[in-house]
Amino acid sequence: MGVVNVTPDSFSDGGRSFAPQAAVAHGLALLEQGADIVDVGGESTRPGAARPPAEEELRRVLPVVRELAAAGATVSVDTMRAEVAARALDTGARMVNDVSGGLADPAMLPLMARANTPYVLMHWRGHSAGMQANARYDDVVTDVVDELRLRIDAALEAGVPPGCLVVDPGLGFAKAPGHNWELLARLGEVRALGRPVLVGASRKSFLGQVLADPATGRPRPASSRDAATTAVSVLAAAQGVWCLRVHDVGSTLDAVRVTARWGAETAATVPLPLQRLGV
Rank of each mutant, 00 (worst) to 15 (best):
V160I: 14
G163N: 13
E57C: 11
V249Q: 00
K204Q: 14
A73C: 12
W242F: 09
A215P: 06
D36P: 03
A154C: 09
G217L: 09
L184E: 02
R66D: 13
P169E: 04
G194H: 08
F206N: 00
V234A: 03
A212Y: 05
W181G: 06
L68Y: 05
S205M: 15
E55N: 10
A174E: 09
F11V: 02
V65H: 12
V246P: 04
D213P: 01
P8M: 07
R66L: 08
A107D: 06
S44P: 01
R94K: 07
P271S: 08
P162E: 15
H123L: 02
L156Y: 09
L30N: 00
L207T: 05
P162M: 14
W262S: 06
V141Y: 11
E56Q: 14
S223P: 04
V140Q: 12
T117D: 02
A93D: 06
L62N: 01
E147C: 09
R225K: 14
D168M: 05
R66T: 14
Q275V: 12
H247G: 01
M95V: 14
V190G: 02
A22D: 13
L183G: 01
A54W: 05
P196A: 07
V246S: 06
A236M: 02
E147H: 12
R16V: 09
R81V: 04
H127I: 07
V4L: 11
P106N: 02
A212P: 05
P52V: 13
V141E: 09
S202R: 11
N5S: 05
D13T: 13
P221L: 12
V140A: 13
D143S: 02
A135K: 11
D105M: 09
S44M: 02
M131E: 11
A133I: 15
V279D: 05
T230C: 03
P110V: 04
L193H: 02
R60P: 11
M80G: 05
A107Y: 00
E32F: 15
